[in-house]
Amino acid sequence: MAIRQGLLALLDEGPAYGYALKTLFEERTGGTWPLNIGQVYTTLGRLERDGLVESAGQTEAGHPLYALTAAGREEVSAWFSAPVPRERAERDELAIKLALAITAPGVDVRALVQVQRSESMRVLQELTRLKANADSEGDAAWLLVVDRLIFDAEAELRWLDHCESRVVRLAAARKKHRSAAAGTRVSTR
């Protein structure tokens, strides 16, 4: 989805050919999401089929040029003015793992949380180091992307803290429950 919209946005700035679009996309997003040239051509083919892009002659070297249609321009301006849908369609392995662990017998959830915490923290440290060594003006676009990943890692770490305190509270409540139940049994004997 992002590739499709990204290519449309780049074409809104003027006609271009496939390889140039690949290079531009990577430059403008800080090289964070490398594109495969096959992906670019497949996407351009679909955009053409959907009437958002049309052929616009070729370069001097013979590369076929693509340009936006009126519908394509509308699509770009709609994309820039609308929020990105936030429903999480993709399966989140970590959330699934924790949900299963919390009810599975014999899994040390706090240990699991800590292993993940260290891993996420390590990623956060690496991202921060990249950011620390970057040039704040020259790398502005790339830094925004890095910040995005930093905030993602931070959110995951906060969520892990939240999970851990929830697990601790649950365990304490169960223990209390069990000792209360044991107390009842003693008194009825």
Binding site: P34, Q114, S118, R122, L127, L149, A153
Partner: peptide
């Protein structure tokens, strides 16, 4: 102390976390 992380240089940090 339950754990600690060390910073290790891996230039692929961004690519692998995207």
């Amino acid at each position: 102390v339950v754990d600690e992380t060390a910073y290790a240089v891996t230039p692929q940090a961004i690519a692998t976390s995207s």
